[in-house]
Design a protein around this nucleic acid. Sequence first.
DNA 1: GACAGAGGTCGAATCGATTCGATCGATTCG
DNA 2: CGAATCGATCGAATCGATTCGACCTCTGTC
Lengths: 362, 362
Amino acid sequence: MDAEASQTRGRPNLAAVAALAGVSASTASLAFSGAGPVSEATRAKVLAAAKKLDYAGPDPRAQSLRRGRSGVVGVVIEDRLRDAFRDPINVAMLDGIADALGAESLGLLLLTDTGEGGADISLAPMDGVILIGCSTELDRPVRAFRQRGIPIVAIEAEPMEGVLAIDLDNRDATAHGARHLQNLGHTAVGLVTLPLEGSRQRGELEPHRIAASRAHTTLERIRGARDVFPDASGVVAGGSSVEDGLVAGRDLLSRTPRPTAIIAQSDLLALGVIRAAEELGLSVPDDLSVLGFDGVRIEGAAPHELTTLVQPAVDKGRAAGGAVIALLNGDRPEPSRFTSQLRIGTTTAPAPSSAAPSSGSA
Amino acid sequence: MDAEASQTRGRPNLAAVAALAGVSASTASLAFSGAGPVSEATRAKVLAAAKKLDYAGPDPRAQSLRRGRSGVVGVVIEDRLRDAFRDPINVAMLDGIADALGAESLGLLLLTDTGEGGADISLAPMDGVILIGCSTELDRPVRAFRQRGIPIVAIEAEPMEGVLAIDLDNRDATAHGARHLQNLGHTAVGLVTLPLEGSRQRGELEPHRIAASRAHTTLERIRGARDVFPDASGVVAGGSSVEDGLVAGRDLLSRTPRPTAIIAQSDLLALGVIRAAEELGLSVPDDLSVLGFDGVRIEGAAPHELTTLVQPAVDKGRAAGGAVIALLNGDRPEPSRFTSQLRIGTTTAPAPSSAAPSSGSA
DNA sequence: GACAGAGGTCGAATCGATTCGATCGATTCG
DNA sequence: CGAATCGATCGAATCGATTCGACCTCTGTC
C-alpha cells in the first residue's frame, strides 16, 4: 500500500525503493552509497527494486542539501564566452581547471560576469569558485561568495581578502621582454594593452584611465613595460584578438615618430600588429619588432615565429583547480605564483638605424 | 535565545534571520523571494536582520531540493575541452547555448564525456542537458537522464527516443558542395573525415569502420559526398584541427592517382589539407581544389578564402538552449533542422586538364 | 555456557528552504 | 452597524536523502 502509493506518485524516490525492497530507507541509502555495512543479499534486493521502479539513484539535489556539497565548482569568466574562448590562453587555463576538477569528479559551472545585466551569479549551487581574468569590479559577487563560505580562487586578480591568488609574474616578465628590446637598441616603443575596463573601450592609453582601472593583469604588464621604458605610450585594445591588434597596430604605426618596437599584451594582439605592419609595407622584424605575451600555439602565425613571453597557462589552471579542491578539503593551500619565459622568435631584431627612415616628414 | 543559538552555530539560515527579525520563517522567505504580499516594514526588518547576521540569502542547495530545480543545464561535450574548444565551431555553438540559457539565468555546467573513465555524468544537479557533438555511444548517460526525467536535447545526434534533435543538413549540404566540385570537372575526389569512433583513431576510411561507427555527423557527411561521388575514398582524421588535416592531406596527396579535389569535413581540416598541398608544391586551387565545412572565421586562413559550407552554428546553439528551456516549461517544442549554405571562395577551381600532370610516374 | 564483539538493520533527526491553507485584523461596502 | 474582502502573517507539511546512535542477532572465545 505504502509502496504502491509512492510508486504511482510521480518519480520514485529512495523511500519507495526501500519499501518495495522491504527494507528501511536508511539501509537503502547505504546500499547505494556503499558507505557502511550492508549484506550482499540486501543490496541485491534494493538494486532489484530500483530497477523495477526505474529509479536512477539518489537525487543529486537532495544529496546536495544533505551533504552540503553540490559537486560543482563555478568558473567566472569576464564577458561573453565568444570573446573569452577566442583567446587560446583562456581555453588552456580552462582545460587545466577542468583537468584538476575532473580528477575529483567535480563539475565545472561556466558563469559569465555580465556585470549589472543578468541575475546574480552565485545563485547557482556550487561549492567553490574560480575567478578567471576578472578585470571588472566584481566585489559584490565576491562578497556574496564569502558570506556563503564558498572558497574563492582568483587567477591573476588584485589581492583580495579571503581570496586565494594564483598569480603570474606579469610585471617582471614584461620588463624582461622590454629589456630584450632595449638591448636590441630600441628606444621608441609602443604599447598595445588589453582592456582597462569592463566596458572594453579602446583608445589612447591615458594616465587617468590607468588610474581608474582595476584590470590587474593589464596594469601589471604596463608597469613592467614602463619599468624599462618609462615614457612608453600606447593604445588600449578593445579585447584580445587579432582584429583588435590590427586596429591598434594601424593606429600606433601611423604616428610620427613611428615606434620601432611594439609590446603587445597578448599573442593575438601581436599578430594583429604584425598584420598592420604588413599592410603598411613594413617588414617585421626589420622595420618593426613585435613582442607578444602568452606563448600559445596559434594557427596562422606563420611565417613568423612570435617573440613572446610564454606562460604556463594549463598549469595555472590546474593549480587553480587544485587550490579549490584543497580549500574544500579544509586545507590551507599557499597562494602560488607562476613565471613566464621569454621565447625569442623571429619578430624581434635590432632597431633599424635612424639613418634609414622608411617614410615620414623628413 | 533561539536566535542566538542559531547565530552561533555556523552559517546563518533563514530561520535565524527570521527569528532575529521577529517574524516567521515563511514570512522571511517571502521577503526574499518577493512572491506573495509582504509589508514594506517587514521586508526591511528581515533585510536588516540578514545584514546583521551576514546572511547572503536563501541557500541554493535547499532551493534546488524544494523547487525541484537547480537552475543548471548540463552541456555534454565529447572528449577534452582542449580539443573541443580548438575548433571554433564548438565555441560558436556553446556561445549560442550560453546566450539562450543566460537569458533565463540558467547556469551552464560543462561536462566532458570521458567514456568509461571518470564518475558518471548525471550525478550533478541539473535540470536539463544538451548533448553536443556526441559521436560516442552515451546510451548509458542518456538512459540515466531519462530516468531522472531530465529533458535531453541533442545537437546533430542520431535520432533517439525521448531526445529532442537539433539537426543540420549535413548530408544534403555536403552533396551540394560535392556537386559544385563535380560541375568543375572533378572526378578524382578524396575525403578527409572527422573521427568515426570515440577513440579518434586516424586511418583509412574503410567500409567496416563506417559500418561500425555511430558518429552521426561524420557519417552523414560521408553519405552526402558519396551521393555525388559514390566511389570516393579517403582518410579518417584524428580530430578537427589543422594539424590533423595536415597529416591527412599528406597521406591523400601522396597517392597515385592524386585526387584533384578534397572534401574536408571541417574548415580546420581543410586548412591543414591546404598546408599539405603547399608543402608538396601544389597550388590551391589550380592543382587541387579544397572544400571545407563550417564557415567559421579562422585566423590564419589567409591568403585563401575557403570554399566551404557555412552552417549557422550560433543559431544552432541558441535553438538547443531554447529547446531545453521550452521542455523545462513543459512545452513540447518541435525538433529543428538547420541548413548550411555553400560559400564559394578561392580554394576551388576547375579540375586541371589531365593533359598537364604536374608530377607522377608518366 | 556466557559474554564480548562485530555485522547488519532500523528510527529519527536533520539539511534549509518553499508553499498551501488558515488565521487575524483592518478596511470598505451594503 | 454587520459582513465581506483583502492584505499580511504564521504553522505545518514537504522536498529526498544521509547519518548517528540504538538495537538485535549471530559467532568466536575462554
